[in-house]
Simulated scan of single mutants.
Amino acid sequence: MTTIPIQHYLFVAAAIFCIGLAIAITKRHFIGILIGIELMLNAVNINLVAFGRHDPERLTGQLFALFVIVVAAAEVTVALAIILRVYGRFQTVDPDEVSELKK
């Protein structure tokens, strides 16, 4: 059985991170920005698991990846709640059109 070198994992993770960053910067609505952030978090998870596989005696990479998944789930929950409140108030999900956040 051949093993995949760690450089391949890092290259894929860097590509996914760059795609996520481009999406988060260029999208014009909150959901697109949230998707870009999730892609960046998944790229970090790929790096953590790759380094965890590189050193099989320790499970720190996999444990950190689980922690990132839990944080990402909480982040999505809070972000979607905020998006729903903004949409209810301003009737739009375009961040450029939301100019005030007061009562």
Rank of each mutant, 00 (worst) to 15 (best):
T2N: 06
I6F: 02
Q7L: 12
V12L: 10
A13L: 09
A14V: 03
A15P: 02
I16T: 04
I23W: 03
I25L: 05
T26Q: 09
T26C: 10
K27T: 12
R28F: 01
R28T: 08
F30A: 14
I33H: 11
L34D: 10
I35W: 04
G36M: 15
G36D: 12
M40I: 01
N42R: 11
N42I: 14
V44C: 01
N45D: 02
I46Q: 06
I46W: 06
I46F: 01
N47F: 02
L48S: 04
R53M: 11
R53L: 14
H54I: 04
H54N: 14
P56D: 15
P56F: 15
R58Y: 07
L59K: 07
Q62P: 03
L63V: 04
L63C: 01
L66Y: 02
L66Q: 01
F67G: 12
V76D: 04
T77V: 08
A81E: 00
I82D: 15
I82M: 14
I82L: 13
I83G: 14
I83S: 05
L84M: 12
L84S: 15
L84I: 09
R85I: 05
Y87L: 08
Y87Q: 13
G88W: 00
G88P: 13
R89V: 03
V93E: 08
D94M: 02
P95D: 09
D96E: 09
V98N: 08
V98M: 07
S99T: 06
E100A: 11
L101H: 08
L101K: 10
K102T: 08
K103N: 14
K103G: 10
K103Y: 07
